[in-house]
Design a protein around this nucleic acid. Structure first.
Lengths: 342, 342
DNA sequence: GCGAGTTACTGAAGCGCGTTAGTCCCTCGA
DNA sequence: TCGAGGGACTAACGCGCTTCAGTAACTCGC
């Protein structure tokens, strides 16, 4: 039973209690090889636990010149569904006896004000003597990396820099597009509509490419009029779906660029008295759980591998810190979540 | 323009460059009052910036015996929409020159395994010599606080301990229930249905109480058959709404216990060919943006004050650390978000 | 012209730990 | 009996910083 008192027990106290020197305590705690008989070791460990000794991480870092800290700067706080990056990173870091120092920026702005805020945050992390830095974005895109990030090994997660200067971890949008489309093909559909974003972003490009590739692989023709774009919102999806459903020969399946658009598509489909998946099969993308799991019927969608990307980010960063070579771009595959809309 | 090199510039280097002692540098950086002429001050600050000096937070903490760290342990990572607690806490902390050390537990379990994980996390935070601890929960409820939390001033956010031993910050569920109901009353409704949770949790109890209070205040009768419960999910909401709509005299408005249930209620309403808000006005609770903002029509709902609770948590904790008296329970009010469903 | 008071600064101790370079003692072979 | 060798420790320095207790030089009132 450890002491309940605010711990100001130091190694010297432990040493005194165990009747040894501070050095010996340090050796025991740091598992220094040999030279210390079992008897002494247990005596020290007992003193540690009865006194409720807790090493002072700051002092240790000072003396050893290693902090075991990794900084994680994220804009995720404003886009909750990407928060699993933190979980993945944390778990992986703990496994390596590294610890995460999480900072966050208010916005996903890339303008001057945003950069300045990020710089301040990173500087605070540097003052903590982090050994490396992870920069995580809300949505997959190119970002401008603040200059100050160059002071320490840095890895980008769910984003990349235009110059390709920093190692990055991104989702395999193309592969995700392929599996979503393949699922529809496997269900026997041959006229598959694709609802894409108007914005020219990696997610849009990649998913479309996946769609065409899967079609090609299945020997199905690519029909440009089956592809239509819109705002990446429920309303955009609603309008786009209506456009597709107004066609003389309407599609029997819809691959929606993201879950929110699928949400809108659901409305359009239901308004026409059509059933899902009976009359129309639907797949989404992103697995924004709150949306996809609660739609009726629940949406079959592709999950973005946030947790895996977080873990890969830490692994890559650790390698980088140790001076190893790391790939400049890693893609992490996106897997299909089967629910009831196909 | 600061140096680009990995900072191992120390205060001694700055002192040498500025031609003063380390003590003087320290005084300048810590804004020690008087005794230092402007000329010396600027000389030091110039040396700081040309050398790219960055104070070592660990060393500073060691010497000053203050870490300026606050620990935040959250289970929020598994429940993204509550993540604004972090934002609120971080902003408030920065304003006070305190910094947040964020840790997270995997689950919102309250069993032995969960407690053990929390304990380990807190111990790591204690090794960093945090000055205080914030424990934040995903959803408003009673929690079991790990023993180690007693080693340091601790404040609970969005949760409370049964014994009332720790100061807590919780949302004003009753007040939220009142404003949601009042909004419906203000729109002229007199037959207002309430869809509640089956589980006996603070959110359910409080919102129901708010509903009855608002009715009473408006001079409307409380009609028990207008209240029905269900799973706190879209399906639960769907079923409950159907039950209410099957009544001979069906309600003209629905106050749903949360947004997911409202999502299900929307389905039930639309299936009957009824319009929102024309035939039925609907309010939700929680403001789970992904749901409420993208429903069609967008849902008028009550927002849980996560950001404010985070900020209040830090403020309370800071007071507690300074030995001030703090209230044992603070409720933060929930405000109505007007959209298009009323 | 002298002590008191101020201004501008500095020396050195010490925060809790890791780590190097020992010291001391005990065995054991020759 | 003696010296080599190794096992079991420890003294002491240094990590980068804060802070206490000065010191030295310069006013200023009388």
């Amino acid at each position: 039973m450890a002491s309940k008192v605010r711990s100001d027990v130091t190694m010297a106290d432990v040493a005194a209690a165990a009747g040894v020197s501070r050095t010996t305590v340090s050796f025991v705690l740091n598992k220094r090889q040999a030279g210390i008989p079992e008897e002494t070791r247990t005596r020290v460990l007992e003193a540690v636990s009865t006194l409720g000794y807790r090493p002072n991480a700051g002092a240790r870092a000072l003396a050893s010149q290693r902090s075991d800290w990794i900084g994680l700067l994220t804009e995720i706080v404003t886009a909750p569904f990407a928060v699993n990056v933190i979980k993945g990173a944390k778990d992986r870091a703990w496994a390596d006896h590294k610890y995460l120092l999480i900072a966050s920026t208010d916005d996903n702005v890339t303008d001057a004000a945003g950069l300045a805020d990020q710089t301040v945050q990173i500087e605070k992390l540097l003052e903590q003597r982090i050994e490396g830095l992870l920069l995580a974005a809300t949505w997959h895109r190119a970002i401008t990396v603040p200059d100050v990030a160059r002071e320490v090994p840095t890895v980008l997660v769910n984003c990349f820099d235009a110059a390709g200067e920093f190692p990055s971890i991104v989702p395999d949008e193309v592969g995700g597009g392929v599996v979503a489309t393949q699922r529809l093909v496997a269900a026997g559909h041959t006229r598959i509509g694709f609802i894409t974003f108007e914005d020219d972003i990696p997610a849009g490009q990649g998913r479309l490419r996946g769609y065409t590739r899967a079609l090609e692989a299945a020997g199905l023709p690519f029909e440009p009029t089956l592809v239509t774009g819109g705002d990446a919102t429920a309303l955009g999806g609603y309008d786009a779906a209506n456009r597709l459903l107004d066609r003389a020969e309407r599609p029997t399946a819809l691959f929606c660029g993201n879950d929110r658009m699928a949400m809108g598509a659901y409305d359009a489909i239901k308004e026409r008295g059509l059933s899902i998946p009976g009359d129309l099969a639907v797949t989404g993308f992103d697995n924004q759980e709150l949306v996809s799991a609660y739609l009726r019927p629940a949406l079959t969608t592709v999950a973005l591998p946030f947790e895996e990307m977080g873990a890969a980010g830490v692994a890559t960063l650790t390698a980088l810190i140790q001076g190893e070579e790391v790939p400049s771009l890693q893609t992490v595959s996106c897997s299909l979540l089967e629910r009831s809309s196909v």
